[in-house]
Design a protein around this nucleic acid. Structure first.
Length: 260
DNA sequence: ATGTCCTTTAAGAAAGGA
């Protein structure tokens, strides 16, 4: 089965692009970020017409996440636990049943954190601390569990075409990178680095300054897997070509295949 | 070369977020 994540940068603006990609790759599960839509306005019908069950956690104007799955989505949980005052829609989690047992998916849109020196950066770090705590609880269940999404973290210098350009950016701060490592140190395996040895693999190219044309990208969309999920991994990939389509998102899909 | 895009507000641009 194929499980994908993609920051689509607005479902209203991207609907045709997203549908074209779904028809091309037909993932069994798709985690979408930055839907920029309230739940009531999410265009469910075209996705359901392609055979997907749809669950959303949206808000007005920005943020918002969605889960699509060909199987029924069970035990849907909206919002990252640990801070009732957090009103930003950045996390949705659900499970599906497979022949090999249940699998659970967390779809996340981690705060950007820029600019440094504002309340945005500590919010990012606090959100990451809550994600670590939540992952720790899920991992204790010792079941197949995946955390997929836009982490807004460049884990290492190799994950940027020009790492020197990101020194003053929240995505590349030691505090952000340390927390990403803490997540993996809990026992989560990062899919792409564990199944690909390619260089220059990125998931985001800014709309500005000809970043795509220069391949000036960064790798900030990640799939983290529990041991029980990792043991079933049969492949992974990045749908880079989608960045060259008409009306592209600035991110591209990342996917992993698990033995059914 | 802050060289782009999406959304909201509110009635044509401008601001916020990325």
């Amino acid at each position: 089965m194929k499980i994908a994540t993609w920051n689509i940068n607005g479902v209203k603006a991207r609907i045709d692009t997203v549908l074209a990609w779904l028809k091309e790759t037909s993932p069994d599960v798709a985690c979408l970020q930055e839907i920029k839509s309230v739940d009531e306005n999410f265009p469910r019908q075209p996705f359901e017409d392609l055979g997907y069950n749809v669950e959303t956690h949206g808000q007005k104007g920005f943020n918002g996440v969605a889960l699509l799955a060909k199987s029924p989505l069970e035990d849907v949980q909206r919002g990252l636990p640990g801070n009732d005052a957090d009103e930003q829609a950045r996390y949705i989690e659900a499970g599906i049943s497979t022949a090999g047992g249940a699998i659970r998916f967390g779809c996340l849109y981690l705060p950007n954190g820029n600019p440094l020196g504002t309340e945005k950066f500590p919010y990012k770090l606090e959100w990451m601390d809550r994600l670590i705590a939540h992952a720790e609880r899920r991992l204790a269940e010792e079941t197949p569990f995946l955390l997929l999404g836009d982490y807004n973290v460049i884990p290492d210098p190799v994950d940027a075409k020009n790492p020197e350009n990101w020194i003053g950016d929240a995505l590349f701060q030691p505090e952000s990178r340390r927390r990403f490592r803490a997540l993996t140190h809990l026992g989560l395996t990062e899919a792409v680095r564990s199944c690909s040895e390619e260089a220059d693999i990125y998931t985001f190219w800014d709309y500005q300054a000809g970043a795509w044309q220069k391949n000036n990208g960064i790798r900030i969309d990640h799939i983290l897997m529990s041991a029980q999920a990792t043991d079933r991994m049969t492949g992974c990939g990045i749908d880079k070509h989608v960045r060259g389509w008409e009306k592209p998102s600035d991110h591209v899909p990342v996917w992993v295949k698990l033995a059914a």
